[in-house]
Design a protein around this nucleic acid. Structure first.
Lengths: 221, 221
DNA sequence: CTTGCCGCTATTGTATACAAAACTGCTCGC
DNA sequence: GCGAGCAGTTTTGTATACAATAGCGGCAAG
């Protein structure tokens, strides 16, 4: 997914990124109150951009509001994460279908070169996880761009948790990473054939496999 | 869909509702700039709650940001609305599937009584559109509640445009309204049987029929 | 010992003042 | 005549001050 920022200016974006980082890094456990002034001190800006950031985090369900209007860090249980994958599978599948219909030759070429980079990262003696993640993210962004639906793009932003993707990918061995690249390849073929259903099916399978990889990587809990 | 407000306090909510009203009523045509100070004067509050409201409207794509950071009223073309229905069909279908698995006897009873009210509104000599709309909204809210996914609920809120539903419903004749109630009934049966796929299929069909009713009601454009 | 009420404190909501950045229209040079 | 560059103005971003409200603890009555 692209940078979650970009909608508003600098201080609010840094606040968003920083607070989100605190939550995802586990520095702020579920239930921890998110007090505006305290966060303002941490980030080094005033309450105003903090409030902006918190509203975004609330919309993306990183935080939930207590009856009295206080924000606390949300608790993402396993069921929640599974649901996120399910929604992502549906929505990205839909995006792939749209992309299959609309993809241009130039976009197709970009997708191919992007996936070539991913394959290169995987093929190294010691697979380059960082490059894989960057390439993977770019690939999915390209698909989203090809789908040409701002609504879909907006909804999927904030649903794709890079930290979760990372947690999944770091447990992959080389063959898993290669399989992922191969699935991208299948998707490119479906795009080239402008076959919407094929593209949707491949993408859905791609994401659902990621779900099970994630579950396998998650120790009980 | 439930009240889009409720997340933050009064002034910001009124601002949100009022600005949204301006857009949906057509008082602000697509491309019209949404200037904070001007809106503050109109609503009678300061810029702060206006900014809150605008952020929400931006997230829901009622407004889009120009490269320079200004907000203007978004242009919802027909393709956009069709996409909204498609997404709603997917997501509410998914919600129905979840609800079929989780629905309790009490919720089922509520759904039945709600749909009975809808049928009563339809059965009158002159069908009561307002009651139909209120009942319809409540019915879909109950399904969402039974799905027990805050994420799904959040995503669907802001995707269900009451004004669009209204525009569709006002073009319905009695048999259309009755068919809608009948579909709700089918859904209740699927819930009673705890048949996820059935529920999903019925809901998807329900929404897609609404899409075509909307298209039939839309004069060219 | 428990429970309900009351006052204080902490925290968020709103307003306003100030800073920065972007658009506009102009002038100047080519 | 046309375009680039530069100021003035408008508009948004940020900070701070003030208001309102929710939460908390203590106190007193039962």
């Amino acid at each position: 997914m692209p940078d979650n920022q970009a909608s508003t200016s600098s201080a609010a974006d840094r606040a968003y990124a920083e607070i989100r980082g605190l939550i995802l890094a586990g520095d702020a456990n579920p239930g921890t109150p998110l007090r505006e002034e305290a966060l303002a001190d941490i980030v080094g800006v005033s309450r105003t951009p903090i409030r902006d950031a918190l509203r975004r985090l609330e919309a993306e369900l990183y935080a939930v509001r207590t009856p009295g209007g206080r924000l606390v860090v949300a608790d993402w249980n396993v069921d929640d994460v599974v649901e996120m994958f399910a929604l992502r599978a549906m929505l990205e599948g839909h995006a792939a279908a749209r992309a299959a219909r609309r993809v241009t030759a130039a976009q197709l070429a970009e997708l191919k070169s992007c996936n070539a980079a991913i394959e290169a990262a995987v093929a190294r003696p010691e697979p380059d996880i960082a490059s894989f993640l960057a390439g993977n993210r770019r690939f999915h962004d390209l698909v989203l761009a090809a789908s040409a639906s701002v609504r879909l793009t907006t909804m999927l932003t904030g649903l794709v948790e890079q930290p979760i993707v990372r947690r999944t990918a770091t447990r992959y061995d080389r063959s898993d990473l290669a399989r992922s690249a191969h699935e991208h390849d299948q998707l490119i073929q479906a795009f080239a054939a402008h076959d919407e259903e094929w593209a949707c099916a491949v993408m859905t399978a791609h994401i659902r496999r990621a779900l099970h990889a994630f579950q396998a990587a998650s120790p009980s809990k």
